[in-house]
Design a protein around this nucleic acid. Structure first.
Lengths: 130, 130
DNA sequence: ATAAATGCAAAATGTTTGCACCGGG
DNA sequence: CCCGGTGCAAACATTTTGCATTTAT
């Protein structure tokens, strides 16, 4: 048995993910973690993300061709991507009613769904483009 | 004025995209197009896809970290990704009611939305795993 | 004939892996 | 101590770009 060790890098990476208002891209995650751990390398970030995914602590969100990562187990939720500032936020209200097992027209058996909304985040909506 | 030329490669690429039941990945697209045009190179596929996107003929769909491309202008629709055979299909009924301009709780102004359903396609549902 | 389009190979990106050193238990 | 974890650099995979040649017009 090989219990993962607790290291400063892992602590920081997990904390950064937990403190984020939505899923983070690898560059975002790396930049934030390096504020506490300047020497941190990308490889460690990827390896840690992989580990955390296997542990079910974190899971990936693919959005606009970018891989982002967020804390798992925060319940069913979806995402909002701001077209102005490019940040991604969690939404806590689901606009879809598709219970697992629903059969969609055509005979598609639905097991899960993913929704992404695009538009302006509260900040960018209050401060429109020049 | 620089009107794009009509070439055999472009004809084939467009036809392959039109004949598909859903968005295609670049490898899928390349493989199908090469059946008619064995010498076709990847670079041409990417360049053509870029051109077709600028013309608004094709648009990208990002799904599970993979870039796929489909004919644009087929109206509002979403996608279904089969977990068994990994193919992606178009759905022609939208499970979300979020008109452009809707303001989502928290102050998020919605301009567009994207939905992906995951599960079993009709074929795989009829022929369950061993 | 002219310039756009293609194919190839080299160059950017983004992610993974090999390896010597570091450090948690 | 010991072996897992880290950083660095090399290896990969995917997408883009440079350039000589082909080809639509």
């Amino acid at each position: 048995m090989t219990a993962p060790r607790s290291t400063r890098q892992r602590e920081v990476i997990v904390r950064v993910i937990e403190d984020a208002p939505g899923p983070l891209s690898v560059p975002e995650l790396l930049a934030r973690a390096q504020q506490d751990l300047p020497g941190l390398g990308v490889a460690t970030v990827y390896r840690t993300l992989k580990l955390l995914q296997e542990q079910g602590v974190v899971h990936p969100v693919h959005l606009d061709g970018e891989s982002r990562f967020e804390r798992a187990g925060r319940g069913h939720h979806h995402h909002f991507a701001c077209r102005t500032c490019a940040r991604v936020f969690d939404l806590h209200q689901c606009p879809v009613a598709l219970p697992k097992g629903t059969v969609y027209p055509g005979g598609f058996v639905v097991e899960a769904h993913e929704v992404t909304l695009y538009g302006l985040c509260p900040e960018c909506a209050a401060r429109p483009p020049a």
